[in-house]
Deep mutational scan, measured.
Amino acid sequence: NQASVVANQLIPISTALTLVMMRSEVVTPVGIPAEDIPRLVSMTVNRAVPLGTTLMPDMVKGYA
């Protein structure tokens, strides 16, 4: 089972991601792979991401 990136807090729309905002967790459905966390830092989300939500590729500008 692959770990995915999960929001560690509410991430408001257009917020630049930082390490403290994300954690890795094995979830269903599978989202962005946890090993991509370093790549996600400073990318922005294009929607509000509630606490505990799995980050999907279409939620992060420039990721997909």
Score class of each variant (00 low, 15 high):
Ile32Met: 02
Thr54Gly: 01
Ala34Arg: 05
Ile11Trp: 02
Arg47Gln: 14
Pro12Val: 04
Val60Asn: 01
Pro38Thr: 12
Gln2Leu: 14
Ile32Gln: 00
Gly52Ala: 06
Pro12Thr: 09
Ser42Glu: 11
Met59Pro: 01
Ala16Ile: 11
Ile37Ser: 04
Ala34Val: 10
Val27Thr: 11
Val6His: 02
Val26Leu: 13
Pro50Trp: 09
Asn1Trp: 08
Gln2His: 11
Gln9Ile: 11
Val41Ala: 05
Ala7Thr: 12
Thr15His: 07
Ile32Ala: 00
Glu35Phe: 08
Val60Trp: 00
Thr44His: 14
Gln2Pro: 15
Thr53His: 15
Arg39Leu: 10
Ala7Leu: 03
Thr18Asp: 06
Met59Glu: 01
Leu10Arg: 13
Asp36Met: 13
Met22Arg: 00
Thr44Met: 12
Lys61Asp: 14
Val6Asn: 01
Tyr63Thr: 03
Asn8Val: 11
Leu10Val: 09
Met56Asn: 05
Met43Lys: 11
Leu19Gly: 12
Asp36Ala: 11
Val41Lys: 04
Met59Arg: 00
Gln9Cys: 07
Asp58Gly: 10
Leu19Gln: 10
Met22Lys: 00
Thr15Ile: 08
Thr28Glu: 15
Ile37Leu: 12
Val5Arg: 02
Thr18Pro: 00
Val41Gln: 06
Gln2Phe: 12
Val60Glu: 03
Thr44Arg: 13
Thr18Leu: 08
Asn1Ala: 15
Pro38Glu: 10
Val49Thr: 04
Ile32Pro: 00
Val5Met: 02
Arg23Trp: 03
Pro57Asn: 04
Ala48Pro: 14
Val45Met: 06
Val26Met: 11
Tyr63Leu: 05
Ala16Ser: 11
Ser42Asp: 13
Ala3Gly: 12
Gly52Phe: 04
Asn46Pro: 00
Val20Met: 14
Pro33Thr: 08
Met21Asp: 04
Ile32His: 01
Leu40Cys: 03
Val6Arg: 02
Val6Leu: 07
Arg47Asp: 05
Met43Ala: 06
Thr44Tyr: 12
Pro57His: 07
Met59Thr: 05
Arg39Val: 12
Asn1Ile: 15
Ala16Leu: 09
Ile37Phe: 02
Val6Ala: 02
Val41Trp: 00
Pro33Leu: 11
Ile11Gln: 01
Gln2Tyr: 09
Met56Lys: 09
Thr54Phe: 03
Val30Gln: 11
Arg39Tyr: 11
Pro33Tyr: 12
Val49Cys: 06
Lys61Pro: 15
Val41Pro: 02
Arg47Lys: 11
Pro38Met: 12
Val60Ser: 01
Ala7Lys: 00
Val49Arg: 00
Val60Lys: 01
Glu35Leu: 12
Val27Tyr: 02
Leu19Arg: 13
Thr54Gln: 02
Leu51Ala: 14
Ala34Pro: 07
Ile11Arg: 00
Leu55Phe: 15
Val30Ala: 10
Leu55Gly: 02
Thr54Glu: 02
Gly31Ile: 02
Met59Asn: 06
Pro29Phe: 03
Pro29Tyr: 04
Pro33Arg: 07
Ala64Val: 13
Pro29Ala: 04
Val60Leu: 09
Thr53Ile: 10
Ala64Leu: 12
Val5Cys: 06
Tyr63Asn: 04
Val26Gly: 05
Ile11Tyr: 00
Ala34Cys: 06
Ser24Val: 12
Pro38His: 09
Ile37Trp: 03
Met59Cys: 05
Pro57Thr: 05
Pro12Met: 07
Leu17Phe: 02
Arg47Ser: 11
